[in-house]
């Protein structure tokens, strides 16, 4: 900084450390709880220091799950979450890229109409139209299927706009040079545009993977068959036990497992993640 104010520096570090601690506190408590046997979480207060049942608890949930959630192994729930997240991320990216390519590089009747049609979806979060959307998916017999979990969430105005913005910044001369070099539209898309979009695609993939993994309301509605539960929905099912204290040590282990993949993605691909997030503003 510009002038020397040592106490301001100390204050800054202090505030930041406090922020980091408050951010991490819930995770620490959850982690600790997931390493204890059932009886130490029955009464009194939750322990503050890890116990000895780490492997036992995690092995239990991964293997056999909880009766409250239909005894589906959490491993299987994670598999479902993974499939759903990947289908949503890949699906959104593919249909957004080709739609943005069509809108930017072609002129055709109803082009503006299509543009606005896609734009409108930006304004309709799934939460506000759940009942009729559920009706559509039910009548298409897509309940309890990976398709039903992912396809209705695949159309995305945001991703289409991101790619549109990016394509508009690609120099015109590149397309002209490609035309003179004899490349048709699809050849241009695959040989020039997609390689240039690599980082954008990767950044968007990170964001969309997290978006897909964390879906809650939609899987809650379309999965009545336990074998299609995603892990986030599974946790809710484990909590919703009547008249009994939930099996906290196992629920907390499941919670840790539910957070692990997206948090790892964010931390390991931080640069891409930030790029993907910040570009949405533009």
């Amino acid at each position: 900084m510009i002038e020397r104010r040592p106490w301001l520096n100390v204050l800054s570090h202090f505030v930041l450390c406090a922020g980091v601690l408050v951010t991490a506190l819930p995770i620490w408590i959850t982690f600790v709880a997931s390493t204890h046997p059932a009886d130490s979480l029955m009464s009194g207060r939750a322990p503050l220091w890890p116990g000895a049942h780490l492997f036992e608890n995690y092995a239990t949930v991964l293997d056999s799950g909880l009766r409250a959630a239909g005894s589906v192994p959490v491993g299987m729930m994670m598999w479902n979450s993974l499939i759903m997240a990947l289908m949503i991320a890949v699906g959104k990216i593919v249909i957004s890229i080709i739609a943005a390519f069509g809108i930017v590089y072609f002129r055709f009747p109803l082009r503006r109409t299509c543009f606005w049609l896609i734009f409108v979806t930006l304004m309709l979060p799934v939460e506000v139209r759940i009942l009729p959307t559920f009706g559509v998916v039910a009548s298409l017999e897509m309940l309890n299927s990976y398709w039903g979990l992912s396809v209705p969430l695949i159309a995305s105005a945001t991703a289409t706009f991101l790619f549109r913005q990016f394509f508009l910044t690609v120099p015109e001369e590149l397309a002209e040079a490609a035309r003179i070099d004899g490349a048709g539209p699809l050849k241009f898309l695959f040989d020039i545009l997609l390689p240039l979009s690599r980082t954008n695609i990767a950044a968007l993939f990170v964001i969309l993977f997290i978006f897909g993994w964390n879906q809650y309301l939609w899987p809650l509605l379309v999965t009545t068959d336990e074998s299609f539960y995603t892990i986030v929905v599974g946790i809710q099912r484990m909590l919703a036990v009547d008249d009994a204290e939930p099996a906290w040590h196992l629920i907390m282990a499941t919670t840790m497992l539910a957070m692990l993949p997206p948090v790892l993605v964010v931390i390991c691909m931080q640069r891409l993640f930030i790029k993907g997030l910040i570009e949405q503003e533009k």
């Binding site: 120099p171 001369e173 590149l174 002209e176 040079a177 490609a178 035309r179 003179i180 070099d181 004899g182 490349a183 040989d191 020039i192 390689p195 240039l196 690599r198």
Partner: peptide
């Protein structure tokens, strides 16, 4: 079509394909 006119063009900003090597840039057409 431009590709069928048997012409070649040098652009002001060169319009080189940034993800291709020099060899591939020349060979693409």
């Amino acid at each position: 079509e431009p590709a069928d006119r048997n012409i070649a063009m040098v652009f002001q900003n060169y319009a080189l394909y940034p993800h291709m090597s020099v060899f591939d840039n020349m060979a693409y057409g």
